[in-house]
């Protein structure tokens, strides 16, 4: 079972994964080409942990231990001893292919190389390497504030052993994992998009206002939040981007068409909880 994780890219997802892994007792080598980005990433992780300590959800003494497990690096070669390297960089196929080619050259034999993209072809990335059987996708859907699901993407070349290792990492991170085929959007995004899109259409057709839709859904499904509350939590800009990416990837499939309400809200800066206003208004910080 993997104990040392490499993370490429110190953006939002890279930070979330690094924090989660370090809190789960895993040694993390966090790579970014930019030293300033790495430093800011560590500051963000530290401030987040500090907030948890203030809230009482984390003991004070854990802070040093967790931060001590994070090793910021600016050279790819420093990832060579990791059991798994998770790539969380920009969504560009050429960049990813190039990156994985280098990662595969440097990594030791048992290392699995994973991309977090839910959109680009994992198979295309795998084929750019000399070890496609070790390459797979590990997508962590946008479930702020927690990482709740891991979608492991297999290609026709991925070895079963690699899938099992990825599942092991999911277990170490205490995240439920599923295995899916290399299809744009994967599973979670498609279900979420249809759920949000249909809610918007129902509200848009004036069948019920969004507050009532949320109330009905919570009552019928026993869920904590309705679709509009979820969209506010996930970020309306993220939902809009999701609609567009799915529609592009699936030949303008009508089920994935974007609703005008999303763009209106985003254009008005009402992107959800993070902006203190989305479908609902929020007086205080996100809990």
């Amino acid at each position: 079972m993997s104990k040392q994780l490499g993370i490429v890219g110190a953006g939002t997802l890279g930070i979330a994964l690094t924090r989660r892994a370090a809190m789960s007792g895993i040694e993390v080598v966090l790579y970014d080409i930019n030293d300033t980005v790495l430093r800011r990433a560590l500051e963000r992780i530290r401030s987040d942990l500090q907030r948890r300590i203030t809230e009482g959800s984390l003991p004070q003494e854990a802070l040093g231990e967790i931060i001590g497990r994070i090793h910021p690096r600016t050279h790819l070669i420093d990832l060579r001893m990791c059991d798994c390297v998770l790539e969380a960089s920009i969504e560009d196929l050429r960049t990813k292919k190039d990156l994985f080619k280098h990662l595969a050259q440097d990594a030791r034999a048992g290392t699995i190389l994973a991309t977090t993209t839910p959109w680009l072809s994992v198979e295309a990335i795998a084929q750019a390497t000399a070890r496609p059987e070790r390459v797979l996708g590990m997508h962590f859907p946008h479930t702020i504030p927690h990482l709740k699901l891991l979608e492991i993407v297999r290609t026709p070349h991925t070895a079963t052993e690699s899938i099992e290792k990825a599942k092991g990492i999911g277990k170490l991170l205490s995240i439920s994992s599923i295995v899916c085929q290399d299809i744009p959007g994967l599973v979670f995004n498609r279900l979420l998009q249809v759920w949000c899109s249909e809610s918007l259409l129902i509200a848009g057709h004036s069948i019920a206002p969004f507050t009532q839709i949320d109330r009905i859904v919570r009552d019928q499904l026993g869920s904590e939040s309705g679709p509009f509350q979820s969209m506010d939590a996930l970020g309306i800009d993220n939902i809009l981007a999701l609609s567009r990416q799915l529609a592009d990837a699936h030949g303008r499939e009508p089920r994935y068409s974007e609703h005008f309400m999303l763009k209106r809200l985003v254009d008005s800066g009402k992107t959800g909880i993070i902006a203190r206003e989305g479908f609902y208004q929020y007086a205080t910080e996100k809990k």
Partner: peptide, 9 residues
């Protein structure tokens, strides 16, 4: 499983 996460149900 993915659906339960997406819906929170």
């Amino acid at each position: 499983l993915a659906g339960t996460v997406a819906l929170g149900s």
